[in-house]
Design a protein around this nucleic acid. Structure first.
Lengths: 319, 319
DNA sequence: TTTGATCTGGCAACCGTTTGCAAGGGAGGA
DNA sequence: TCCTCCCTTGCAAACGGTTGCCAGATCAAA
């Protein structure tokens, strides 16, 4: 159907290798010949078959980007940043969603392995062991996970959590609920770690939870019952679900309970009350991850990006 | 590095073709031989190279899914549905985002062409002519666009717009602002068409606009100034931006202006006031599009899915 | 035992492209 | 005029698989 390198070669009476070189090693072919080839190629609408090329070169100029849940508004800005960055390097990004299911994640990685030069693993749910094993077949860069010897882009969650807790403490909150995320989440562990070592706080842990609005909605009653005057939520979706649940119980935010989220996603900015949250550098992370993958070729560089507290309307003085 | 079909063949003393057949044509090989092959393959961690396989078979078992903007919460549910459906058919979906840029869209399609068996084009921004031309190289299914002879999944926007306008008319609104989307948007045209032929309405058109919160924010002042008592927005993001802009001007929604959106995305459900909107069947559309692509192989079936009006808090009686 | 049908597995060509090697030709130096 | 050397191009193998064809083996029926 579509024109191949042979068609082009035949059309201008040269060998296929000359056509090939006209594209990938122009200095090896006579300028006059080359322009004839290019003209013929253009005429026939020829475009090199990247998959076939990859077979011999070993480079696909594709990279995979695996996220737990595209529907979580935290990811799209990261994805877009990664795609834009990759495009600038003549790479294309294939995005896939695992539905928060480690088995799907593994299967996806295995499938992708041969079709990409590397994979960006965002907030993976697989075990470190499994990730290390899979890394033998294809280079990884992990985002929001620390794995020994593997290039990683981390967001300074500990810093953000500390900022948030200080903010709450400054408003007079002592008894604080910590609504964590799914099992295997590095972010969740970081948050809990910082909280646990902050002195003078009376913490109540809730988890694991789905990292979604539904997850927040589901724990709202428990949180309300535990007597906390403030909540630190795993992410903004959870925080929004929580606020939704609380207001359904006629519990005002921030009048009766203050809520802080993580991520700084769009719905949080539009919500009433507008959500106080720890902003995660998703765009920078997407860009960084691509650069790391393309540069390092697997060396274990780790980049940590700063987070920032954005105070809006969902936090107030403790009663 | 990774094991190839040759390694497996050598490991159990058979020819590569026997290994190949053990996977892709089991009935042609002796069960005993086959289990030896499978054991050796498992042992070596062999997985067929899909790209290489595609070279001879012409089938990649991949499909592309191109959207204008992943960050628009309308798309993720559609993407997830498509991925899930495809997974069930042993297909994988590569998602890519065009940043609302037709040139990026074209480039992306060209790149994808050889690496996938077909492409799902969601709300494309390319011209019909260009899409028809590209369709010569790879089968398409378009979502939310009608192109002669090309399989399509449409959402009944006209129906939804009519529902919304009737709702507003029933609340006593006569002067209604229509805030449209980007140029080339089929959805936008459908909306305008229905509105224009609805009698007894005093319509003011605003457009084209970016299909985002920023787009809504940008026209808020004009909409406020035009004297309309109600607005039909291109999508929920625009509606939310509009509400944001209006409330910054101390104009209450729905007290002074009613707002209806399109899509029914999460932020709209969480927003205060909760957004009245026309729900689009994104999940069904994602599933349908995959089925159409896999069945038809390019025949021009068209599926139209119903929409529904969801009345929440952003619409009220006209003053 | 012969015949023929049915299985099974090897051989080799092919998919579209790249790339090391070598051959041909022209130019420049001796 | 002859010899190098470089530039340009063709040849063929390779990448990792699939598949049509053929030959040998097996087995049941005659």
């Amino acid at each position: 159907m579509a024109a191949t390198i042979k068609d082009v070669a035949r059309a201008c009476g040269v060998h296929v290798s000359t056509v090939s070189r006209s594209f990938s090693a122009p200095h090896l072919v006579n300028p006059a010949t080359r322009s004839r080839v290019l003209a013929a190629a253009d005429d026939l609408g020829y475009r090199p078959n990247r998959a076939a090329r990859a077979l011999t070169t070993g480079r696909t100029y594709n990279m995979g980007l695996i996220v737990a849940d595209i529907a979580n508004p935290f990811f799209p800005p990261l994805i877009k940043a990664a795609q834009a960055q990759a495009r600038g390097r003549d790479y294309h990004v294939f995005v896939a969603d695992t539905d928060e299911d480690p088995r799907v994640e593994e299967e996806l990685i295995r499938t992708l392995t041969k079709q990409v030069d590397g994979v960006l693993l965002c907030s993976p749910r697989l075990s470190n062991r499994m990730i290390e094993r899979l890394a033998e077949d294809v280079p990884f860069v992990v985002v929001n996970r620390r794995i020994k010897g593997m290039p990683a882009v981390l967001m300074n969650v500990a810093q953000g959590a500390k900022l948030a807790l200080d903010h709450l403490a400054g408003l007079g909150h002592r008894r604080i609920a910590l609504v964590s995320g799914p099992i295997g989440s590095w972010t969740s562990n970081e948050m809990q770690g910082v909280a646990a070592e902050t002195p003078g706080l009376d913490l109540i842990f809730f988890g694991p939870n789905q990292p979604t609005e539904a997850g927040g909605l589901a724990v709202a009653a428990d949180v309300a019952a535990c007597g906390a005057t403030a909540v630190l939520a795993y992410n903004d979706l959870v925080a929004l679900g929580l606020i939704e649940g609380l207001s359904a119980m006629e519990i005002g935010v921030p009048d009766q309970i203050s809520v802080v989220g993580f991520d700084d996603i769009l719905p949080g900015r539009l919500n009433r009350p507008k959500l106080t949250t720890v902003a995660m550098p998703a765009v920078a992370a997407g860009r960084m991850a691509v650069d790391l993958l393309l540069q390092s070729g697997g060396e274990g560089a780790t980049v940590t990006l700063d987070t920032a507290l954005i105070v809006r309307e969902s936090t107030g003085r403790a009663r």
